[in-house]
Amino acid sequence: MSGMNGTRAVRVLLFGAAADQAGARELELQVRDGATLGDLWNELTGRYPGLTPMGDTLAFAVNQEYAGMERRVSPGDEVAILPPVSGG
């Protein structure tokens, strides 16, 4: 998982409308040491601009628990991009 220049891979899962907008359901992103979910989001929207308009509606999870944008992400973490849930 270790990359060059102190960056490491985080596994990113996208669901529902977010997967649609990105055109991807799963990917790996290299993040710097000390990076937050917010940093990862910036990286993600740079790569998939279609996600940008959804930004205000999305929730995030780190290792399968809801997390805020200030949450640190570490190598090997599983990050999920969650559109507004619509079960039931």
Binding site: G16, A17, Q21, P83, S86, G87, G88
Partner: peptide, 24 residues
């Protein structure tokens, strides 16, 4: 369930689909 459980539904219409809640 409608607040916190990560489940999503897509309505498949005769003229396309839409993700409920996202309007995408």
């Amino acid at each position: 369930i409608k607040q916190v459980v990560p489940i999503w539904k897509r309505e498949v219409w005769s003229d396309g689909y839409v993700w409920v809640g996202s309007q995408v």
